[in-house]
């Protein structure tokens, strides 16, 4: 399913850099403040564990994982809107 517009951060409404979910995930890690962390935790993930994983192991697994969740969330919300 494709979205009608770019991904918007579900916490602060900032438009993701290239409009993709993975960029929104990066934005969340980068900002790292309480509201963003809380959102991630609310998805059943550990913000810090994802962060440590991202920084200490090769590849982009945490970004991809969070990106997928953001994508799903955006899709869900768009569907709800409709």
């Amino acid at each position: 399913m494709s979205l009608s517009g770019p991904i918007i951060c579900p916490v602060c409404g900032k438009k993701a850099k290239t409009g993709s979910a993975i960029d929104c995930a990066r934005h969340m890690f980068g900002t790292g403040d309480q509201p963003h962390r809380k959102w991630v935790e609310a998805q059943g993930l550990s913000f810090i564990d994802l962060l440590i994983e991202q920084a200490t192991t090769p590849g982009n697994r945490s970004y991809v994982l969070l990106g997928e969740i953001i994508q799903k969330d955006a899709e869900k919300r768009e569907a709800e809107k409709k």
């Binding site: 850099k17 290239t18 993709s20 993975i22 960029d23 990066r26 980068g30 900002t31 790292g32 403040d33 309480q34 962390r37 810090i48």
Partner: peptide, 18 residues
Amino acid sequence: FERNINVTRHIEWGEVEE
């Protein structure tokens, strides 16, 4: 200060993914 994180800083410019 949950998980002892004191400060976070984020810098981004240009087109990283590209």
